[in-house]
Simulated scan of single mutants.
Amino acid sequence: MTALVLPDLRWFPSWAATVADFGDEVMHGSGSWNLDRPLEPTEASCKELVDVLAERVSADPDSGRVASTYFWITAGDGDREDEVIGFLNLRHQLNDWLLQEGGHIGYSVRPARRRQGHAKRALALGVRRAGELGIDQVLVTCDTDNVPSARTIESGGGVFEDVRNGKRRYWITPPA
């Protein structure tokens, strides 16, 4: 199973293990770029991120930020004992940059938990949530050389549109 949960300090131990597992790799969907310093696998860093992400839900037109919801991906049904294994950011609308490169959804699964179907299930859950927000076509992108992510998007119903600025762009229709 795979679930999307709102960031919470109660998942600190597995969140820290996930952050450590990524190492220097970019954690798409994590929201770590909202911090003034690099993300570290410490309880203080986790608390700071949880607090910042709770504030980043609404749009900030002056900064170019759109309304979004940050989720942590867990391996299970989202109960308190689940393990955090990744991140997903659902953007409620698109600005110019997101339309060209970023898309509605950014996600990543920690290296140790890849190739287990979690990315595909998390993407499907994110697309369903987008549909609940009234988004009738969800844009999801990946780097042109990220073949596993392209396969994940395609297996999740992504219809390839084109490549822009090194990003493959796909549209997915949420379930009715």
Results as ranks from 00 to 15, higher is better:
A75L: 13
R151T: 12
T141F: 10
L49E: 01
E48Q: 12
R110I: 02
S68D: 00
G64W: 05
Q93R: 08
R121M: 08
A75N: 14
R151Q: 15
P111I: 08
L99Q: 13
Q137M: 13
E48R: 11
L53D: 04
G131L: 09
E55G: 04
R121D: 05
T144S: 11
T152G: 13
D143W: 11
P41L: 07
V52N: 00
D51M: 01
R80L: 14
I85Q: 03
A122R: 07
R129T: 12
A122Y: 06
D62V: 02
R114P: 07
E48D: 12
R128Q: 14
S63E: 10
L39P: 01
T74F: 08
E154I: 14
R65F: 01
P111W: 07
P111M: 06
C142D: 14
D145S: 11
L133S: 04
D82L: 06
H118L: 11
R121C: 03
G64D: 06
A75G: 13
W97M: 10
E81A: 15
V57W: 02
G134I: 05
A44G: 07
F87Y: 11
A150W: 06
R114T: 15
G86W: 03
D136K: 13
V140L: 05
V66G: 02
S45Q: 03
R80G: 14
R91I: 04
P61A: 00
T141D: 10
Q93S: 15
R56T: 04
I135R: 05
D79G: 15
I85L: 05
A150R: 15
A124D: 12
R115M: 12
V127K: 05
E83C: 09
Q100R: 15
E132N: 09
E43F: 03
G102I: 03
E154P: 06
D96I: 04
R91E: 05
R80V: 14
G117D: 06
Q116P: 01
G131S: 05
R114N: 05
L94A: 02
P111Q: 08
I153D: 08
S63R: 15
I153H: 09
H118E: 11
I85K: 04
A112H: 10
Q93N: 04
F87S: 07
T42D: 07
R65P: 00
D62F: 00
D51S: 10
I153N: 11
V109P: 08
G78L: 08
G131K: 07
D145F: 10
L98H: 03
D60G: 00
T141M: 07
P148D: 10
K120W: 00
